[in-house]
Design a protein around this nucleic acid. Structure first.
Lengths: 237, 237
DNA sequence: CAGTGGTCTAGACCACTCA
DNA sequence: GAGTGGTCTAGACCACTGA
């Protein structure tokens, strides 16, 4: 069951994403919305703030809130979106292949990435992503076994994120991504269809839980021509 | 003059960024802070929300708010940060060279990028960025003349952002970045020290004003080995 | 001028954590 | 149980917009 402000948020996010509300359209005023939803204005404002933060609307003082012009590929904007959601939104046939799934002890480098002691038990998952017949993404995930006791090939082929959130109910809180461009490793060359591209885009993802512990480290390695990253940034004080 | 919540935000952002507040340190409770600042709890919460959104703190229900472990290079996290601020934070000697500054009419492609009519008057600014003796970034900016009547080489060598915000007092609201990796153009090869790298990282930046008009389009072209992008994403409903 | 969003208040109740 | 953050309310005043 959603909170009130999340209900309002999802109502309008859905309407905008589905196109039921066209760009430039003016939303009801905060006063009106609070009456429609039978709630206080501050609660409405919380929902509108979220909508504006996520690029759905733009609030203009003295005028109102307006639906932003947003292309299909604008979703998702920066965030913790799984490959499964992403490829579903893109509407392209895709396949995930699990190359490796093993329980291991963290070596020194990994332990420092995860900020835990060496030899800490972790899951290592290596997967390739194939879209339109070309294998263009290599994902290497490391999870603390502490948090995830069980992991199977079936789960990895589907969506680990979904498993974490819906089945294990693990509250993922925030993630930091660092994007760089690097030379391909022999592993990249072996597993990806690099077609001679001499570089890969590496997205390193540090995922934290709600209690601020770091529990996952991911390297996502992309063929450069197929890589696209969208970031939506707002100004604040 | 800052708002109350921005004052609290800047107080703590400064303390954390300067290292006066170490990671893991617990902030005073919201109740305490509201007394210290002589304000309501909701106002304190607004400030803490901003701090948490910008990666400074982590709030944990039932426990409190804690300073996040943040390395030097974590700042800035994704946002509208100018090259001047960035190189200042990195503490490296750097130089901006203005290659081209001209008033022109938008051609068709640019007009579509800026979502204006063709032949709309725009400023075109081309600059290179040199860090540590290597020219590794090529920036191409286009501004609507409508918004910026005057632009000089001196301003472009300093910081256009600073000029917009502090001198012209133009309220920049939000920006969308799209990051891709592409083949270098002849211009890239001419102006950048590419050292044989066969690709450039292209960051396309669409900058909007507070009234949601798009007024600037920027292409920032980076030598791949010197490119790094940090994104900080939070989970929300 | 009326309508809008931006800020702020002084409460309230809840769910969660930890001793 | 005391303390914490999460949600919510019913007001208030302000600055900005547009007719």
């Amino acid at each position: 069951m959603d909170n009130k402000y999340l209900q309002i948020y999802h109502d309008y996010a859905g309407k905008i994403e589905s196109g039921a509300l066209r760009p430039q359209v003016k939303l009801p005023s905060e006063h009106e919305l609070s009456q429609q939803y039978g709630t206080s204005r501050e609660t409405v404002r919380k929902a509108l703030h979220l909508l504006s933060q996520n690029g759905f609307i733009q609030k203009i003082k003295g005028k109102g809130s307006f639906v932003l012009p947003i292309q299909q590929w604008d979703f998702p904007v920066s965030g913790l979106v799984s490959f499964k959601e992403l490829s579903a939104k893109m509407g392209k046939p895709s396949r995930t292949r699990v190359i490796e799934l093993e329980a291991m002890a963290a070596d020194e480098e990994l332990a420092s990435q995860l900020r835990v002691n060496p030899a800490e038990p972790v899951w290592k998952v290596v997967r390739t992503r194939t879209i339109g017949g070309e294998t263009i993404i290599l994902d290497k995930d490391y999870f603390l076994q502490d948090t995830i006791p069980e992991l199977t090939v079936e789960i990895c082929e589907d969506s680990i994120y979904q498993y974490l959130e819906e089945v294990l109910d693990i509250p993922i809180s925030f993630a930091k991504k660092v994007i760089t461009v690097e030379e391909p490793t022999p592993e990249d060359r072996r597993l990806l269809d690099l077609e001679g591209y001499p570089m890969v885009v590496v997205v390193r993802n540090y995922v934290h839980l709600e209690d601020a512990t770091l529990f996952q480290y991911t390297e996502s390695r992309h063929r450069p021509d197929k890589f696209r990253f969208i970031d939506f940034a707002r100004r604040h004080g």
